[in-house]
């Protein structure tokens, strides 16, 4: 279980998180929605320790995320970055098996390669992609490689940052289905950030809406359309008029 308790984070005068409180039960898939610049990615990076919050607590399975063995903590996570964040200088298979080639999860090179190829197959890519460089792949293929890397070490918790941004609707649907399948079969806890309402309905068990640095609404995806929350209604229907200012 991941808990964020009254988390605050500012960048200069820009107060991004203003007391964000959120609980993600173990094994559930939570999607965070909200406008651009509302701090969704910041929240996710705070949990991973990539950004230090000014105040508040972040607990993972009841333990403070900022304390204890950092390598062991991060070994529990997998993350798909918005742009893929694949390492340009490494072939695809070494990107996927990055964690398996070094550190506490190190395996023999051939075994790591086989695992990487298996994970590539899992996300619908052929084995011949393994030796290509990331720059030789299309955007959709890079996203899939990023997804394969996120699941390579079979993490307990997976984060997806804008998994369908920049993809055509068909490829977005493929990625959404893959995420749902993988999360279900691995039994992982998942946290996804997206603007794409199709992704929300495909991926989420629960939805949380972040607005003005706090969670405006949270609940099961099935209740999202009947929430009665004007902020959530405006967002999910993409209306220019409503309590959320269209110009930010």
């Amino acid at each position: 279980m991941i808990e964020m308790q009254d988390v605050h984070k500012a960048f200069g005068d820009n107060r991004v998180l203003q007391g964000m409180t959120l609980t993600i039960p173990k094994g559930t898939s939570l999607v965070i929605i909200g406008g651009s610049g509302t701090g969704k990615s910041v929240a996710l990076k705070c949990i991973l320790g990539l950004i230090q919050p000014e105040s508040g607590r972040i607990l993972v399975d009841g333990k403070d995320a900022s304390k204890g063995d950092r390598d062991a903590f991060l070994a529990r996570f997998g993350m798909l970055f918005q742009g893929g964040a694949l390492f340009d200088s490494l072939p695809v298979w070494q990107n996927v098996a990055f964690r398996l080639l070094r550190g506490s999860l190190k395996r023999p090179q051939e075994e790591a390669r086989q695992i990487a190829i298996e994970k590539l197959r899992r996300v619908g890519l052929k084995a011949d992609v393994a030796d290509r460089l990331p720059a030789e792949l299309s955007g959709g293929m890079q996203k899939r490689v990023g997804l394969a890397r996120a699941i390579a070490a079979e993490p307990e918790i997976i984060f997806f940052d804008e998994p369908t941004t920049g993809l055509d609707p068909i490829m977005a649907g493929v990625i959404n289905d893959l995420i749902r399948e993988i999360v279900t079969e691995m039994g992982a806890t998942a946290m996804t950030i997206t603007h794409d309402m199709t992704s929300v309905r495909a991926i989420a068990d629960d939805v949380a809406m972040l607005h003005d640095g706090v969670i405006q609404w949270t609940g099961p995806v099935a209740q999202m359309d009947a929430s009665g929350d004007p902020y959530l209604d405006q967002f999910i229907h993409g209306r220019a008029e409503g309590p959320i200012e269209a110009v930010r």
Binding site: K45, D71, L74, G83, F87
Partner: peptide, 16 residues
């Protein structure tokens, strides 16, 4: 460039 494209964040999440 690695920083701008989040590759450095990716390194951290991969325990490196």
């Amino acid at each position: 460039t690695m920083k701008v494209t989040e590759q450095i964040d990716a390194l951290v999440t991969l325990s490196t």
